[in-house]
Design a binder for these strands. Sequence first.
DNA 1: TATATATTTAGACAAATGTCTAAATACATT
DNA 2: AATGTATTTAGACATTTGTCTAAATATATA
Lengths: 84, 84
Amino acid sequence: MNDIFKALNDATRREILELLKTKDLSAGEIADQFNMSKPSISHHLDILKRADLITAEKSGQFIFYSINTTIIEDVLQWILTFKK
Amino acid sequence: MNDIFKALNDATRREILELLKTKDLSAGEIADQFNMSKPSISHHLDILKRADLITAEKSGQFIFYSINTTIIEDVLQWILTFKK
DNA sequence: TATATATTTAGACAAATGTCTAAATACATT
DNA sequence: AATGTATTTAGACATTTGTCTAAATATATA
């Protein structure tokens, strides 16, 4: 849970997840959406990946990122234990 | 969402929430469960309170804390938008 | 009013975090 | 092989965070 909450504790990373909700995107396509250097975005992607919130797949010179719904489910279950 | 995820991004604070799941506790009772100074726990309680994840109610010289399920529901809804 | 208990506030400090630029790596194309 | 595009790695640096001790505030009780 530690890595997951650490990863979610940043507005840019949460926005990256929002972007990936619609469709998979390459690192460059993601970086284009932010007013921030590519290395910074790459670092955010790394943190999300380490938390298993996203997965990376190489395709030629591009790397495409997608949301990992399995881990989202884990967070959901954790939150649910506090309901009522 | 920023304050909420900031508050959840700490193991001690998540444990405090776990404790409050069972029953309301005073600041002292909470501090007794941790190997950490009372001021540090007080600080964690403040962060949880600012995030509205807990509420505080004074009773004599004690201050009792409880989980605020309303905000838990907000987090739940946020997470749900990523499902499938 | 004086003392004890419960809790917070203030201030210091080391460690972690987010950002940047420059350089490195990997693949594609000419 | 040389060049261009996509992305990451490395290293620096300012800001934020979590912890501590000492002091302040608030309530209860003798």
